[in-house]
């Protein structure tokens, strides 16, 4: 019986020791990890538009029914073409804005006539965000021209999943974590266009 007690005591002693060591280790570990936070800001998911190939996975792989990824128009980069390959389906027969001639499956790319310059009509192209499903068809089309349309994670919709399901499915590693205080990325040439307009103004 006394041997039993001794055994129990020894086991308790081991347990207490391990527990204390564990608690100290845990506190230290938390301190180290939290201390690392000082180096960087918290992150959110974003698409690098210079890497994105507009494969269409964003529309289907997001855990939300309606993807958090939407097309964004960089107006400074858009050349306001009449025959916009991001707006028209290139295989269309007529040059009208009828739905079957539009590239966007949901009609989310809208255009407004602005002015006629030297006989060339000029249009401003907008994304009607509630309709956009993030399929990237317009992005792929626009890439033939200036590439002013590009895909971005819209952070009012994004759940910021720990592992973004689209990032897993992305064939081109365009998804990455970016600092939460600067959560949008622009194409290099879009940045240049915006900067040059800023310089003019």
């Amino acid at each position: 019986m006394s041997q039993d007690n001794q055994q129990l005591d020894r086991r308790d002693f081991m347990r207490n020791g391990t527990r204390t060591a564990g608690a100290i280790f845990l506190a230290g570990f938390a301190g180290v990890v939290a201390g690392r936070k000082g180096h960087a800001d918290e992150t959110v998911w974003q698409i690098d538009p210079d890497v994105c190939v507009a494969c269409g996975n964003c529309a289907t792989y997001c855990v939300l029914d309606e993807s958090a990824v939407k097309a964004v128009q960089c107006f400074d980069l858009c050349a306001m073409c009449d025959s916009c390959p991001g707006y028209f389906d290139l295989s269309h027969q007529e040059r009208t804005t009828a739905a079957e001639n539009q590239l966007c499956p949901t009609g989310a790319v809208l255009r407004t006539f602005i002015a006629e310059q030297a006989g060339v009509p000029r249009f401003e192209y907008y994304i009607h965000e509630p309709d956009c499903i993030g399929c990237g068809k317009c992005v792929e089309g626009c890439a033939m021209m200036n590439g002013s349309l590009y895909l971005q994670v819209r952070h009012d919709r994004c759940l910021n999943c720990n592992q973004c399901a689209i990032a897993v499915a992305c064939p081109s590693q365009a998804f990455r974590r970016v600092p939460a205080n600067d959560p949008y990325l622009m194409k290099k040439k879009a940045r240049a266009a915006v900067a040059s307009r800023g310089a003019e103004a």
């Binding site: 400074d76 980069l77 050349a79 002015a115 000029r122 401003e124 907008y126 021209m145 040439k189 266009a193």
Partner: peptide
């Protein structure tokens, strides 16, 4: 890049 036309009275949206 095709340059963006400058149109009087039309401001680039943001």
């Amino acid at each position: 890049l095709l340059s963006r036309p400058v149109i009087e009275g039309h401001n680039t949206p943001t």
